[in-house]
Design a protein around this nucleic acid. Structure first.
Lengths: 337, 337
DNA sequence: GGTATATTTGCAATCGATTACATTAATAAC
DNA sequence: GTTATTAATGTAATCGATTGCAAATATACC
């Protein structure tokens, strides 16, 4: 590995000059600058980022904590994160927790061990171990699309989940639906509560009774969508419209309903949440809420970098606008169903 | 930030002892070891990974270079990579190139600048800039599911693409199909050629003439699938069976054909490649080739770690077995179509 | 008990950068 | 031409660890 010394030798200057020529070229005369560049070129020198990080105390990396990489929605966020991070000269460390707290603590620990300068959290769990909890204060953290549970309020980039489900609910109510089912993802998160609140709110003003019994599910997966569809259709008072709390669930629901011979939307309307890519290409295309995932990922980078740099945040919560996409999986109620 | 000095102070020992107590506990007496642990506990000390990396020359990170994060197939590989890496104490840096060579060079450069110890490449392009090409020799690289073009032969973990398309072709020929279309992804890659070879081979033995004209497409995307379907159906001699070179393309093809009123598989059979999750849940479920993406990702980590550690590889190419999934998007030829 | 050997510990060099401070060279001012 | 400023460079300390070597301590052996 060629080090700065080799460049020094070739250019006939000190390490200080080499370092300056590369990081603060304006501090070095044009003549020697050129000499250094040539020496760098010849020797194929690459500064050791780690060494420089030790000295400067900045790793120029961010770590992204994902509950489950196989959810395509997260990929859109991560893509935005990766892009923005790169533009700012940061690299992205990836950590898939698979829902395991131990794994989560390790990943969050990357910031504590100087491997990363900040953490972007795509889940709602408190990412530090009990031991490290007091250290969390010093760690730049921002969560995206989820709100971190716990005493400390971390900055968050989120969707207006409440308003989004309100508009979905209104959309379905306008079509005449009165009997609803909900297939939820993880039920202990804030976004679950927010989404539920939006639905309940519309029901209240429309005089539709809400019943805990109409909620099934408990994980954001296609299989849960299938299971949920079966569970809802087995009820004596089966719904004519189903809220799926993400598009993966909706995919499973649509698939399973069709398999049961139930037509969408003629018999049952199905709506999703997130707008993953395939949602537009299934049969029927899914009515869903479009989250600006890419932009939210980008914004998360800006915010966490702001925290890292010590710039005070204007606000701790940033609410991004949703967009309801009325596609063909929802339609007028079928009174004969 | 608490450093080792603070622990020294609390435990009343030297930095050497602290370092040893943490990395090589057996070199330290039980008594002082406990004292050090207690001091670590009290102070909330976390060793600075970067500092240790500078000294040891190992960053304990791998960088993954992905052409496009939004392709769900890559996520399965990455998930395998992430898991295996974590088990080995490595962390994963993510780089999305978006097909830009400049970006690719930067990402590959992470290994040259000691940010990562090795590179896992999910694309077929040569990842180094012309300038760095000679440095590539020193960089542990392995490619997964693609073979890197260029003079140097990098180790590769790949599917038996040739045999896989052979079996797809046989599957369709057995159903009586004689008129085929192919919607390709990137055409300049080795896997494209391998897959094509498999198809051509079956055609040759079955007496089916092959025609470059039956190949359309040029990118692995849903939209390309739609476009390809339209292109193929506009031909005077339109096919009754379509090979899509990945599942994203197949999704678009299925969607578009159905929109054109063409029934699958009654009128046209469609087969994909990769077996992404949703392939099983679209209508009709997709006949496709299952790649053990997760395992291939895992294996890639093992191989690149072997290179890093200087253990000679038994073989430079590892071919993983495919699995043909005959689902409902393929069926007997319709002579009246 | 005395010597040989093994176990623990500490000192100080080192990894490859960055940077405060000092020094030298160049330019400006009069 | 001399002095005051500014620009360019170098020396050496530093970041926070790891580790070779030596010193100190403990254990084994006769």
């Amino acid at each position: 590995m060629t080090t700065v010394k080799e460049v020094c030798r070739l250019a006939g200057v000190s390490t200080a000059t080499v370092s300056r020529a590369l990081k603060n070229p304006e501090l070095v005369s044009a003549k020697t600058r050129e000499r250094v560049f040539k020496a760098v070129q010849e020797s194929g020198y690459r500064p050791n980022m780690l060494a420089s990080s030790v000295k400067t105390g900045k790793s120029n990396s961010l770590v992204v904590l994902v509950p489950n990489l196989s959810n395509p929605f997260f990929m859109r966020i991560i893509q935005g994160i990766e892009q923005a991070a790169h533009e700012q000269g940061y690299s992205v460390l990836l950590g898939d927790t698979q829902g395991e707290p131990a794994r989560e603590h390790e990943i969050a620990g990357m910031v504590l061990s100087n491997r990363a300068d900040g953490l972007i959290h795509l889940d709602h769990s408190f990412p530090f171990s009990a031991n490290d909890a007091h250290l969390a204060e010093r760690v730049p953290v921002v969560s995206v699309c989820e709100r971190i549970m716990g005493d400390k309020e971390f900055p968050v980039i989120e969707l207006d989940n409440y308003a989004a489900t309100r508009s979905l609910a209104k959309h379905l109510v306008n079509y005449g639906h009165k009997k609803f089912g909900i297939i939820a993802g993880q039920r202990d998160s804030q976004i679950h509560l927010d989404r539920l609140a939006g639905i309940k709110d519309v029901f209240a003003t429309e005089g539709i009774s809400f019943n805990e019994d109409m909620i099934v599910g408990g994980a954001y997966s296609i299989e849960m969508g299938q299971q949920g569809a079966r569970d809802l259709m087995a009820k004596e008072n089966r719904p004519t419209a189903i809220f799926c709390f993400n598009d993966d669930i909706a995919l499973g629901t649509v698939f399973e309903l069709k398999r049961m011979g139930i037509r969408i939307p003629q018999d049952v309307s199905v709506v999703g949440f997130d707008n993953i890519k395939v949602s537009a290409f299934i049969d029927p295309p899914l009515t869903t809420i479009d989250q600006p995932a890419h932009d939210m990922g980008r914004r998360a980078v800006e915010v966490v970098l702001q925290i890292i740099k010590g710039v005070p945040l204007k606000r701790n919560r940033e609410i991004f606008p949703y967009n309801i996409l009325e596609r063909e999986s929802s339609g007028p109620v079928n009174p004969d169903f």
